[in-house]
Write a protein that binds this DNA or RNA. Structure first.
Length: 806
RNA sequence: GCCGAAGUGGCGGAACUGGUAGACGCGCCGGACUCAAAAUCCGGUGGGGGCAACCUCGUGUGGGUUCGAGUCCCACCUUCGGCACCA
């Protein structure tokens, strides 16, 4: 018998699919129906693929085939997130140009992807570094600018000293740069931002529109947005005739506010201390704080300095000292707080250190004496020492105090968010140029849309220096102002690559359009994405940015939906040697040798079979042997039955095959349980292999081949052909025959007092009483009944009988 | 500290809605084929007891609900992930 030769088979079918453009799904208009959009997160083309990434795309591939064979017109595109620091740093390190590095990497990865046999529509390929793509990234930026969603402002920002660029908050993990792990520093800089805080409520509330997202992703996004309800109160500084707002969630404690604290970066600090005895010590403190990294600032003991100024507590009119302290953050709330040491742990710590008064204004209702700080805020706590509000429960007290202060124009309800605006500019070379011009007289002027793209110039030296390398591209940066014609300069910063990836899934719908980023009709046909697949690492970052982008585009009328990804599946990553497999950790396993040895089908099966699709798994090369063995067994039984007459479904094997259809369909279509789907097909094949000449064997083999096709498409296609058919990838998915699923008998489990004592094969249609009678007849059961009285009988139809004596 | 997920054989895991715990695979043990090996095939494989039929214990720990709990409830332990000076 001819042996299974994965290399020959895989090469043959891959060539045929490519020649036929088999997985291209052309646009058919928004009314064509049956559209289904399967999307995996845009890969970053660093080096070559490893088996961790193979997991992601193989899962998407199974779904692609599955839905195609259910009659859907499936779009399954691929592209590359090809701007970014990785290629740029590689180029600086090894010489060469990032463009060349990226081009080579993409080429290699494309070859690898084709060798895996993934059903990708290559006609839709995009790469974010190509002018044909980033022209539209720039165009979208201009729409955001027009709409007031892109803005330039000075703000406290995070700076990575190694990468020499600012970072968005989402790109700082534990105070370190998400890319390189360097401790980030605080800087006050003027930068470009997307005002996504204006969409904070929509980003929260419209989670309800999502059909199926993992709860943990939603939790992480909620956490990240960090909405908190409270009040804004105004504290007066009489000496300077100004009011300073604070945000608080504890307006009920305002009578206990005994000092006031400003963040060191607060813009009023210099004004407050100007010309006072404290001026130099305060400014010195501000400078020292600025020099610290965020992590350092967080770890050190709280400290601060008195400004010499006082504010008036709006509740009781007392003058309270104003301090500057680094435990108050400029980027949250208003950068100033009322300090209530009796009822806040941080304020308590600070007051203790500097010997400030710590009055109690909240007490337990039960009259007990709490230890301070007492932070309870519930109906179990009531106000004390709070004037006319004393004795009110804390939540009610809060309401009344806010209303009372509101009546004097000194307070109102307010909401604050942890979320900050998305800082999008980067002081680096390899990214999308921001299409604006700085004119000395007109200010910021957008580049006219018909002049896009602003091409990224070729420059010799793009090493990071803390300002954009494009600053030194003199020919490029000097440009007449589009408005007044005066000599002006281009914006030299480039965009965060997350801007590129916030709209790529729209471009896939209309990838060759050179008059617009996309036609509305193409978007309406395919979007939102039906099934998105990617790693959890983008829970906040890409997924939040893309949601924001779509909301803005929807408000501007460019798309007709609010949420880009209806269903999200987070595949688990692959560990190797105890750590997540990744290029940067140097623990990657390449698919190339595996494909050469075992074939792509065996690798695909192994990565699907290794564990639940959403769980982290350890890479196990030993499984490849098992998968290979399974494929050889399938191959053998298929050739065995190939000369049997056409596959009539009959006998026990046909029934088993039909059960397998039900199981696999549910496992893939509803549960994303590819591992158990494969196990079910293995079971079927094992059963056939026990007696390949049994009735229904050929039908069972054809079913097994058909069901394994989404996971192992090459061998399935080859065997399908050898079984006398053609083009399995276009064949409708098998449906189970209800009549064949009927069993004539079943195994009745008999329990005595809940313990299994016997198993009886009984006719399927026996009535309950008869089942009980048979159960009682069993000698094994009688031995355990031991003549005792049966007090209760439980019958689960077609499953079990439980006889209870106790 | 807060939020989320998870703890099942030697290993990866299965058991979906409370109803046969350990499917499927790896590994291991025994056997067939072979001069031998590989490949392949057959059988076995949670612990303890028994010649055996069987018995008994067993899903992180301790309780509970139930005829029946890996699954539900309460408390706890451990691991992983997220957030954390956010006022």
């Amino acid at each position: 018998m001819e042996t299974y030769d994965p290399q020959a088979i895989e090469t043959r079918w891959q060539k045929l699919w490519e020649d036929e453009n088999a997985f291209h799904t052309p646009n058919a208009g928004p009314d064509a129906g049956n559209a289904y959009y399967v999307l995996e997160m845009l890969p970053y083309p660093s080096g070559t693929l490893h088996v961790g990434q193979v997991r992601n795309y193989t899962q998407g591939d199974v779904l692609t085939h599955f839905h195609r064979r259910h009659g859907k017109r499936v779009m399954r595109p691929m592209g590359f997130d090809s701007f970014g620091l990785n290629a740029e740093n590689a180029a600086i390190r090894d010489g060469g140009h990032p463009r060349d590095i990226i081009r080579d990497n993409i080429k290699k990865i494309r070859v690898q992807m084709k060798r895996m046999g993934w059903a990708i529509d290559w006609d839709r390929e995009v790469a974010s570094h190509e002018p044909g793509y980033y022209r539209w990234t720039q165009w979208l930026f201009l729409q955001f600018l027009k709409a007031g969603q892109a803005t330039r402002k000075e703000a406290p920002v995070k700076w990575c000293p190694k990468d020499q660029t600012v970072l968005a908050n989402e790109q700082v993990i534990d105070g370190r740069c998400e890319r390189c792990g360097t401790l980030v520093e605080a800087k006050m800089l003027e930068q470009w931002f997307f005002r996504y805080t204006t969409y904070a409520d929509e980003l929260l509330d419209e989670m309800e529109l999502l059909e199926s997202w993992p709860e943990r992703v939603l939790a992480m996004q909620r956490n990240w947005i960090g909405r908190s309800e409270g009040a804004e109160l105004l504290f007066r500084v009489d000496e300077l005739d100004i009011d300073i707002p604070v945000f608080t969630t504890r307006a009920d404690t305002v009578f206990g506010a005994t000092f006031f604290v400003l963040a060191p970066e607060h813009p009023l600090v210099p004004k407050l201390v100007e010309g006072t005895a404290e001026e130099s010590s305060v400014l010195d403190y501000v400078r020292r704080t600025a020099a610290r990294s965020f992590a350092e600032r967080e770890e050190k003991e709280k400290d601060g300095v008195f400004t010499g100024r006082h504010a008036t507590n709006p509740a009781n009119g007392e003058a309270i000292p104003i301090w500057v302290a680094d435990y108050v953050l400029m980027e949250y709330g208003s950068g100033a707080i009322m300090a209530v040491p009796g009822h806040d742990e941080r304020d308590y710590e600070f007051a203790t250190k500097y010997d400030l008064p710590i009055p109690q204004v909240i007490a337990p209702v039960d009259g007990s004496e709490p230890e301070l700080p007492y932070v309870a805020k519930s109906d179990e706590a009531k106000l004390v020492n709070s004037g006319q509000f004393s004795d009110l429960p804390a939540p009610e007290g809060e309401k009344q105090i806010v209303a009372w202060l509101g009546g004097q124009g000194r307070g109102q309800s307010a909401v604050s968010y942890r979320l900050r605006d998305w800082l999008l500019s980067r002081q680096r070379y390899w990214g999308c140029p921001i299409p604006v011009v700085h004119c000395p007289s007109c200010g910021i002027v957008p580049v006219p849309e018909d002049e896009l793209p602003v091409l990224l110039p070729d420059i010799e030296d793009y090493a990071p220096r803390g300002k954009s390398p494009l600053e030194s591209a003199e020919d490029w940066i000097r440009v007449p102002c589009p408005q007044c014609g005066a000599e002006a300069r281009r914006e030299a910063d480039t965009m965060d690559t997350f801007v590129d990836s916030s709209w790529y899934f729209l471009r896939y719908c209309d990838p060759h359009n050179d008059t617009a980023p996309f036609e509305r009709a193409a978007i309406d046909e395919w979007c939102p994405v039906d099934q998105y697949i990617g790693g959890i690492e983008h829970a906040v970052m890409h997924l939040l940015y893309a949601r924001y982008f779509i909301k803005v585009l929807n408000d501007l009328g460019f798309v007709g939906f609010r949420e880009p990804f209806s269903r999200l599946f987070n595949h688990g990553w692959v560990d190797m040697g105890g750590a997540k497999m990744s290029k940067s950790k140097g623990n990657v396993v390449s698919p190339d040798e595996i494909v050469s040895t075992y074939g792509a089908d065996a690798l695909r099966l192994n990565i699907l079979f290794i564990g639940p699709a959403d769980a982290r798994v350890d890479w196990q090369a030993t499984g490849l042997e098992g998968m290979s063995r399974f494929l050889r067994r399938l191959w053998r039984v298929a050739l065995d039955v190939a000369d049997q007459p056409a596959g009539e479904p009959s006998g026990e094997l046909a029934r088993k095959a039909n059960e397998t259809i039900v199981k696999v369909t549910d496992d893939i279509g509803r549960r994303f349980a590819y591992n158990t789907a494969i196990a079910a097909v293995m079971e079927l094949v094992n059963e056939i292999a026990h007696d390949p000449s049994a009735p229904g064997a050929r039908f069972a083999v054809e079913t097994a081949v058909s069901l394994i096709q989404p996971a192992a498409p090459h061998v399935a296609e080859e065997l399908w052909e050898r079984l006398g058919h053609r083009r399995l990838w276009e064949e409708p998915w098998p449906t189970a025959d209800a009549a064949l699923l009927q069993r004539e008998t079943f195994v009745l489990v008999v329990q005595v007092n809940g313990k299994v004592r016997d198993r009886l094969e009984v006719p399927a249609d026996l009535p309950d009483e008869e089942l009980v009678a048979r159960a009682k007849e069993s000698p094994k059961v009688q031995a355990h009944l031991n003549g005792g009285e049966i007090r209760q009988t439980i019958v689960v139809p077609r499953k079990l009988v439980n006889l209870v004596t106790a």
